[in-house]
């Protein structure tokens, strides 16, 4: 299965970066092990990343809408 890499646009500085090229923060925080945040490589701002089910829902919605577009 081919998976599409997800691009995150930093909520602070606006730099676009691919999710797996940001700096994951999980494991660095002493208490929050399973958080969905990714740090912008440019400014360090922590951006929330949508959980997998939300991303799947978005992708499904997009496909459905595009499928209906003549």
């Amino acid at each position: 299965m081919v998976t599409e890499a997800r691009t995150v646009t930093c909520g602070f500085c606006g730099v676009a970066f691919e999710e797996d090229r940001g700096q994951p923060t999980c494991g660095r925080c002493p208490l929050s092990d399973g958080c969905h945040f990714i740090r912008c490589p440019s400014c360090g701002y922590e951006n929330p990343v949508a959980p997998a089910w939300v991303q799947r829902l978005k992708a499904w919605t997009r496909r459905t809408v595009e499928g209906r577009t003549p």
């Binding site: 909520g11 208490l31 929050s32 399973g34 958080c35 969905h36 945040f37 929330p48 949508a50 939300v54």
Partner: peptide
């Protein structure tokens, strides 16, 4: 909505 949900989810778990 996605950002709000993600932050609330994380916050609640913590």
């Amino acid at each position: 909505l996605t950002k709000t949900y993600t932050r609330m989810h994380w916050y609640f778990l913590e």
